[in-house]
Design a binder for these strands. Structure first.
Lengths: 124, 124
DNA sequence: CAAACCTTGACACAGTCGTGGTAAGGTTTG
DNA sequence: CAAACCTTACCACGACTGTGTCAAGGTTTG
């Protein structure tokens, strides 16, 4: 029997058995099965389970995020569609120079100040 | 005034003004602002808003998914981290040949059948 | 065969997502 | 200045996430 059962894997990885099944359903880590259907986690899966925990906490990701990244890797069509949409234009469009953007906040501030002093002086 | 205000953009894109603000907060489409802070949507943004709708429905994605894809594009460190985790091992490890995997269900089925007939014949 | 595992499926529950609405307050323009 | 916009911030609410627990039933092994 070369492989840990789900509860053994749970102990060495820190993931609850419930979460191990959940992770599998998300398509992230699917251990092989014994002839009777028991999950058998090998050294490789155990390592990946540990690094998965780090990946999530260090970059503030959800399991769904990683699952989506996997979809992007597996499905070229999806990857290209998303990629082309993203590249179609940056979130701050090219025709809006950074200077304008940065100036926005400042102008707003100035206007508010101007308005304020106006109202202080020209009390209608 | 070259640009539609949020409600005008809402009418031509189908997104509610509420969602346009939400989409902006997700980092997907940030229109430039008038000096007083009004959002001004240009032709490019309007087009992207329409294609965004298609992207989501055709590939069954969420706004969060696209936002995450954007993070992957913008943050090389994140991209590499996720990528290396994914490449570390396929969800169906190499040491589990497809044939084994496929055979699993069948064997399970056979075992169940065998068990059933056993119990029918050797009634304890 | 009984104890101690494993499996899938279902109920539960707090938290976040996607959406709408409302409130309090600037902006624009007749 | 009043109507009709816009802004941000908050409450609401169903649906999905992440997680636990329990139930009904197979597997393994002393």
């Amino acid at each position: 029997m070369d492989g840990l059962t789900i509860n053994e894997a749970s102990e060495t990885t820190g993931w609850s058995s419930r979460m191990l099944r959940y992770i599998e359903r998300e398509g992230l880590i699917a251990p092989r099965r014994s002839p009777s259907g028991y999950r058998l986690y090998g050294a490789e899966e155990l390592q990946r389970l540990r690094t998965l925990r780090e990946l999530l906490s260090e970059h503030d990701l959800s399991l769904g995020d990683v699952g989506f990244a996997r979809r992007l890797n597996d499905d070229r069509g999806l990857h290209d569609a998303v990629e082309s949409w993203l590249e179609a234009a940056p979130s701050r469009p090219a025709d809006v120079p950074v200077s304008d953007w940065l100036r926005f906040e400042q102008e707003k501030h100035e206007r508010l100040l101007a308005k304020a002093s106006e109202q202080l002086t020209t009390t209608t």
